[in-house]
Design a binder for these strands. Structure first.
Length: 584
DNA sequence: GCCGTTTTCGGCCCGACTGTTTTCAGTCG
């Protein structure tokens, strides 16, 4: 039976949910949740591990290892089957209503026979819910609103590209206040996850009141969901929830750690604190003091993130790496890789001018903007002839080449004469073989025939990589976050071929793409594949995509050494020459 | 159920907000 880590993760998560509904010991429930997280974080196929190897994974012990083997042998886990038979399936559905947790779901089922969202709606109409102990009329109202929102799909995660402008608007609004000492967005947005469930804004101030008020009054805010002295939740224009926390300036670092997460990372470092006789919360790292009423003693660290990590004998962990996928152990042992930063980039290797149909800005202006960023080189990779709408004919490319030569005499940055080639259905490319060799730099991408099967699709890319002028594969999986999945390709085969042929794989920094994704970056790094961080700029503002590309590279643990455009021009030219040697 | 720089037994991350309460449980992140 073919099954994946994801299948396993779902089954353990369901066990945890059902055990919680059953009223099982919370620590046992959490152990199953952590097992599910551990499975999600595993970067090996668990089907290939034996009992001891499974039990050696953090968060997975003897019992969970047995259940994984059980699943492998029989396709099911007995415990899960028993729980499914015992707990009404409707209860899980009920707990998906925001504000309705396991305790209330069980109570509703036991007292009123409610076993579905529909049944709950009927009970709300009949005003039966307010008769139960601990529940009232206000709770009925809240549940009604929550259910109507579920129907409107307001609660779905949104692509990071859609959340970023809202977060930036809120951040700017608050940062302009004289009362705000620091303002930043944290959470999954700061970690550069591909989709976000909400926006977390953090502010440091000695006067939270005006900051809260400004948050509630921000133009992007539609509705206030909860409002306290230190914490508020609002609904913004996109149906996206935003939370603001205001802390004292001296707590900034601890608060930033806390609100950046991930939850699993936070739990990891808090446990580390506990083992050292410390306690960590959003206000700081404190000594434990059993004599004190709240058990909290002297403050050890809190001003900056680095202070907090250092006090736990950890190297500071870049936010995108905080997913409990080995970074805490690495930080403890001083072997956290020094991941690539924006300052390491020496140039950009994928961008368009208005020579191609979809570029919006003249070549000269794009070059000036690239130079203004301090880059040493910028490759203009206008579309080639096969892309009928946007592409340049050979004659047009030659004309552009003259422009580039003249420009290179005049400007303080090296403009690379490049092209974005189109990989056709059979893996063929634009122009003729020899003409391709006259470019400084070529990136080859798939733009059509997304529906082909995995074998064919993979072969298209592998064929393109065989050409000595194909230096990188652009947006290698073709996905658009929240809009379409990537085409079917055998990523292992593509990674192996990239390493073998000396072809780079692009990390496309467009927040709509982030392609290759961070988990693929990490696999690429482990195999020694060379990467590029590319903006795919079609306008001046798109040059900022470098930032999202860098954060995605950080999520994949890539160092400057893994990234081709962190090399000086000479190193880039050597890579191009080596490709020609290797497959030419 | 997991795990160990106090521990192989006895702990297990921590706090804000809401709604229902007269001090707290449930939910969320």
């Amino acid at each position: 039976m073919a099954w994946t880590n994801e299948d396993l993760r779902e089954q353990f998560a369901e066990i945890a949910t059902l055990l919680r509904l059953k009223g099982e010991d919370q620590f046992r429930v959490r152990a199953y949740e952590r097992a599910a997280d551990a499975i999600a974080a595993a970067r090996v196929d668990l089907a290939t591990l034996d009992r001891d190897e499974l039990a050696a994974l953090p968060g997975i012990g003897k019992s969970t290892a047995e259940k994984i083997l059980e699943q492998r042998a029989h396709g099911t886990i007995r415990l899960l089957a028993d729980l499914r038979a015992e707990i009404p399936t409707g209860l899980i559905e009920l707990t998906r209503v925001p504000g309705l947790g396991p305790k209330t779901a069980v109570q509703l089922h036991r007292e009123l026979g409610v076993d579905s969202v529909e049944a709950l709606q009927a009970a709300l109409e009949a005003q039966q819910v307010r008769e139960l102990p601990g529940l009232g009329a206000k709770t009925e109202d809240n549940l009604r609103v929550a259910i109507s929102r579920m129907g409107a799909k307001d609660t779905a995660r949104v692509p990071v590209a859609d959340a970023l402008p809202v977060a930036e608007a809120l951040r700017a609004e608050l940062a302009a206040l004289p009362e705000a000492v620091e303002v930043a967005y944290a959470g999954s947005l700061r970690r550069m996850r591909e989709t976000v469930g909400d926006i977390d804004i953090l502010a440091a101030s000695t006067e939270p009141g005006p900051v809260m008020q400004a948050f509630h009054a921000a133009p992007v805010v539609r509705e206030i969901l909860a409002a306290g002295e230190k914490k508020s939740s609002v609904l913004t224009v996109r149906g996206l929830q935003a939370d603001l926390r205001v802390v004292a300036p001296e707590a900034w670092g601890a608060a930033l750690v806390y609100f950046t997460g991930s939850k699993a990372h936070n739990i990891r470092i808090r446990e580390r604190a506990v083992r050292r006789g410390l306690t960590l919360n959003e206000y700081g790292l404190f000594q434990r003091d059993d004599a004190a009423e709240d058990g909290i003693g002297e403050r050890v660290a809190s001003r900056t993130e680095a202070d907090v990590y250092a006090a736990l004998d950890l190297d500071w962990v870049p936010a995108p790496m905080r997913e409990d996928s080995g970074e805490v152990e690495a930080a403890a042992e001083g072997r956290l890789p020094r991941v690539v930063t924006l300052a390491d980039l020496r140039g950009d290797l994928h961008g368009h001018s208005d020579w191609s149909g979809d570029g919006k800005v003249p070549l000269e202006d794009m070059v000036a903007a690239a130079a203004a960023r301090g880059w040493d080189y910028w490759a203009v990779t206008d579309h080639a002839e096969d892309l009928a709408l946007n592409g340049l004919s050979k004659a047009q490319m030659l004309a552009r080449r003259e422009r580039i030569s003249a420009l290179n005499e005049a400007v303080d940055i090296t403009v690379l004469d490049g092209a974005e080639l189109n990989i056709d259905g059979e893996g063929g490319l634009d122009y003729d073989w020899d003409f391709l060799l006259t470019f400084d730099w070529c990136v080859a991408s798939i733009h059509t025939l997304f529906a082909r099967g995995e074998a064919e699709q993979t072969q298209r890319i592998l064929s393109a990589m065989q050409h000595p002028a194909v230096h990188a594969i652009g947006h290698p999986t073709g996905r658009k976050i929240g809009k379409r999945p990537g085409y079917d390709i055998d990523l292992d085969a593509v990674l192996d071929a990239a390493a073998e042929t000396g072809t780079a794989l692009e990390i496309n920094g467009s927040p709509h793409r982030l392609d290759i994704a961070a988990d693929v970056v990490r696999r690429a790094v482990e195999r020694g594949v060379t990467l590029t961080i590319a903006t795919d700029a079609h306008s001046l503002g798109d040059l900022d995509n470098a930032r999202w590309g860098v954060l995605t590279a950080q999520r994949g643990w890539a160092t400057a050494g893994d990234v081709l455009n962190c090399r000086a021009l000479q190193g880039l030219r050597a890579f191009v020459a080596a490709k020609r040697e290797r497959v030419g």
